[in-house]
Design a protein around this nucleic acid. Structure first.
Length: 553
RNA sequence: GCGGGUGUAGCUCAACGGUAGAGCGUCACGUUGCCAACGUGAAUGUUGACGGUUCAAAUCCGUUCACCCGCUCCA
């Protein structure tokens, strides 16, 4: 258990108690990996998404050359033509049993693995007529894995490579290689290599598809097809990570569809539409906020790894020659965005992926990670990835539609390179909650949510100090004026301390209180959430006061 | 997916197989003139769900669901 597990438990407890986050379908025993936002949670999350949309799309930062950034938005359907997922690579990677190479992070289909076994060495005198025999009769236990390939063709090449290498040493020569049927017509290679002719022995090998149960039981013995090293492969697992559904009334194979596992593909699929309709010129970005769905193997850590989650994604299209500059620029913009909204730099951990982690088409990727109390390892909030021209090229190939861009100034036609800052809305929300959670034992109400004012679910509360003598009427009027502009609450009940305490737990930055002096000189107190300090302002200036405070960066 | 743990009121937690409780919170009334104050009162539970053992189950057993921890995983 990490050192801050107790802190996380308190945060979870507060989130439920105050109405930030509830377990989905709780009255039915819940459902794994799904969460609901309560009255305060929905305001918080909306504020985060709106801050993102405002700061990235409507009022984006100035570009590196001092020119304004071109950013536009889309809102695409969650269900798309299933071919989209073939093009994006999700269909295969999500549906079949897959194995990972822990070292190279390569993932491949388990049911296509071809194993190459060394069976045994036999005297050369027994070699004649071998071609006509069933090679499996020679099998002695245990055959020794020597190599693994991910296709029959590769297995053959691999075998030839081994023999070539041996031939180079001047001692070995391979004799034959042939295909036979094996278990239900699967293709197998069988081969033998004369070995150390002076010792009069030869070596037998065979290659065949590795069965799934073998992969499961012998995962630790099978060499990686990429490195040849033993012990780096995971067990094969079924990755049904996309949610299946059907469209139309008939539920058959032709109506199979998927809930999107990411919002990005809606952007790529609309690349041409946006270009043709909105007068944008490269470089420019398309943004989208929306729900995505992944059947996580093991949802864990509160809302951090949910099966239904919301993304805030940008696909930024630029020329390949400027792409690294843009990648670095976006990386810094995004890190600073979190800092500006209150995530402290020591908890925020940008981490550049090393080459082994990168997808094969990617040149660079920074994971913006955050130290949550539930883990000793930083966890990813956002990835800023250099995706090359992979996605547009894939869609061009699969759809047959041209995805290239023509630059009128340089008269150049090219497929744009994409920089993808992809942020998790729920993960960010959780990070802002964890960051805001503060315990100050010196205060009568120790638990305080110190949200940045822009993110706070309630911007201000208005109280009559006591619920009589004309105070409620004045307070109510202030409240009615404020709530036209900001999320506010009015609370006339119970002791003033209790009301302040409740607002501390909700993370409300300011409380206006109408008291006896208000009746005389028209001033009210403003109480600051973080310091507990009060000042007096004119009751007519509450809105002005909030405007000033909330616009602060 | 594997191993371990937990599940009782909104929250935190008691209750040895024998009548389900406390603190806090919530609500009402009174009081109160700035920090969970005070007084009085109230509501709230098929003890996660299902099944079994038993005269009797929150308690013992089985199944299941959810959450937590460790592995694993995170395209």
């Amino acid at each position: 258990m990490s050192a801050d597990a107790t802190k996380m438990e308190k945060i979870v407890s507060l989130c439920k108690r105050r109405g930030f986050i509830f377990q989905s379908s709780e009255i039915y025993g819940g459902i794994g990996g799904f969460w609901d936002y309560g009255p305060l949670g929905v305001e918080l999350k909306r504020n985060i998404k709106e801050a993102w949309w405002n700061d990235m799309v409507r009022n984006p930062p100035t570009g590196p050359s001092g020119r304004d950034l071109q950013m536009v938005g889309v809102d695409c359907s969650i269900i798309m033509n299933p071919k989209v997922w073939e093009a994006s690579g999700h269909a295969t990677g999500f549906a079949d049993p897959m194995i990972d190479d822990r070292e190279t992070k390569q993932r491949f289909r388990a049911d296509q693995l071809i194993g190459l076994w060394k069976i045994k060495e036999i005297p050369k005198s027994e070699f004649s007529g071998l071609e006509n025999q069933n090679i499996f009769e020679f099998s002695v236990s245990p055959p020794e894995f020597t190599s693994v390939a991910i296709s029959v063709r590769e297995a053959a090449e691999e075998f030839e490579k081994i023999l070539r290498k041996e031939r180079k040493q001047g001692v070995f020569e391979y004799r034959w290689i042939k295909q036979v049927s094996y278990l239900g017509g699967e293709v197998a290679l069988m081969a033998a290599a004369p070995k150390r002719e002076q010792q009069e022995t030869i070596c037998l090998w065979y290659a065949r598809k590795i069965m799934l149960d073998e992969l499961t039981s012998q995962a630790d013995l099978i060499p990686s097809p990429y490195t040849g090293k033993i012990g780096n492969l995971t067990q094969p697992r079924q990755f049904n990570l996309m949610f299946k559904t059907h469209y139309g009334a008939m539920e058959d194979a032709s109506s199979l569809a998927y809930l999107r596992p990411e919002t990005a593909q809606g952007i790529f699929a609309n690349f041409k539409n946006v270009c043709d309709s909105s007068r944008v010129k490269i470089p420019f970005g398309i943004a989208q906020v929306g729900k995505s769905f992944r059947n996580e193997i093991n949802p864990r850590n509160y809302t951090f790894r949910s099966r239904e989650f919301e993304q805030m994604e940008i696909e930024f299209f630029c020329h390949e020659k400027d792409s690294m500059m843009w990648w670095e620029w976006w990386r810094n913009v995004r890190i600073n965005w979190y800092k500006t909204l209150g995530l402290k730099s020591e908890n925020l951990r940008p981490r550049n992926q090393d080459e082994k982690e990168l997808a094969h088409y990617s040149k660079a990727c920074t994971d913006i990670e955050y130290m949550f109390p539930f883990s000793d390892e930083p966890q990813e909030l956002e990835g800023v990835a250099h995706r090359g021209c992979f996605d547009l090229t894939q869609h061009q190939t699969h759809s047959g539609k041209d995805m290239s861009y023509f630059d009128d100034e340089s008269k150049e036609r090219f497929t744009p390179t994409v920089i993808e800052p992809s942020a998790g809305a729920d993960r960010s929300t959780l990070a802002f909650i964890c960051e805001a959670y503060t315990v100050d034992e010196s205060r009568p109400s120790p638990e305080i949510m110190r949200f940045h004012p822009r993110l706070a679910p309630i911007k201000a509360a208005v109280f009559p100090l006591v619920n009589k003598e004309g105070m409620p009427e004045i307070a109510e009027q202030i409240y009615r004026d404020l709530r036209k502009h900001y999320a506010c609450q009015y609370d006339p009940k119970q002791s003033i301390g209790k009301r302040y305490a409740r607002m501390d737990e909700a993370g409300t930055p300011f409380c206006f209180t109408v008291d006896g002096q208000t009746l005389q000189d028209g001033t009210v107190t403003v109480r600051d959430r973080d310091t507990g300090q009060q000042e007096r302002i004119d009751k007519g200036n509450c809105l002005l006061f909030l405007r000033e405070k909330l616009n602060l960066e």
